[in-house]
């Protein structure tokens, strides 16, 4: 019964909250979407926190997503022991980087006066939950080796079963509690997206790579309403 709650009901609830809440917020309160940077208030510690955290966590996040969407590719990666070792080493290094960054970010929010006063309660909730999640992940990396391999036979089929609306808990219900906690807390992080600044994850400005350098917006123009016209830089 509890397995059903933790591994079926809660993940669906979290996804529903993230998607429903995220879209509602995007269409009703778009103004609130922001990374809410505090670099203006404090610069030096932010460098040692933000840069390692983001680069570390992005690669780790990719290592969690790629096996789900490109399972054959991930299996192919594991066909060679050298590649498995390489994955494990890179993963651990990135995890370590992210932990260092997170530690710096938490210390900064605690001890640097200006950022501390610009921190909301939900900022703290998110920061602590992410720290908890990555601590769990790093513990698993150290004590339950070759996670990049067994992820393929546990979390991957479980999440794919959730996605297929045919949820099965038997892939994960026998795993150690630490690993299970990591899974459940992972969905908690997803559930937090619409209630925190985490939404900035989905507004990564990739369009900057090709948009024109100069943008005009007309409220009215002869040949069309609200036309956007670039001049150069396309």
């Amino acid at each position: 019964m509890s397995d059903t709650v933790y591994f079926i009901a809660f993940p669906y609830l979290a996804l529903f909250a993230a998607l429903g809440g995220g879209l509602y917020r995007y269409y009703k309160h778009r103004f609130t979407y922001s990374s809410v940077s505090s670099q203006l208030l404090e610069n030096r510690m932010l460098f040692w926190g933000s840069v390692p955290w983001h680069y570390g966590i992005i690669l780790i996040l990719l290592a969690h997503i790629v096996p789900l969407v490109a399972t054959p590719f991930w299996i192919w990666l594991h066909a060679d022991p050298t590649r498995i070792l390489l994955l494990e080493v890179i993963g651990s290094a990135m995890g370590f980087l992210a932990i260092l960054g997170m530690a710096a970010l938490i210390l900064r929010r605690l001890f640097s006066l200006k950022p501390r006063h610009a921190t909301s309660i939900m900022d703290w909730v998110l920061l602590i939950d992410l720290a908890f999640q990555i601590a769990l992940g790093f513990y698993i990396t150290l004590y339950y080796r070759w996670g990049s391999s067994w992820y393929l036979f546990t979390a991957t089929p479980w999440i794919r079963s959730l996605a297929a609306l045919n949820p099965r808990v038997d892939f994960v219900n026998e795993l150690p509690p630490v690993v299970q906690l990591h899974f459940v807390n992972g969905f908690l992080v997803i559930a937090l997206i619409p209630f925190t600044r985490l939404g900035h994850l989905f507004t990564v400005p990739v369009t900057y790579l090709w948009r024109p350098f100069q943008v005009f917006i007309w409220s009215r123009k002869k040949n069309g309403y609200n036309e956007t016209g670039g001049i150069y830089g396309k």
């Binding site: 922001s34 990374s35 940077s37 900035h200 943008v215 005009f216 007309w218 409220s219 123009k221 036309e227």
Partner: peptide
């Protein structure tokens, strides 16, 4: 950020800004 077509005033859309600064 954009220029208004009719008068060239440069504005920051508060709905689109994501604090990339």
């Amino acid at each position: 950020i954009y220029k208004r077509g009719m008068d060239g005033i440069v504005l920051v859309s508060q709905d689109k800004c994501r604090a990339w600064r």
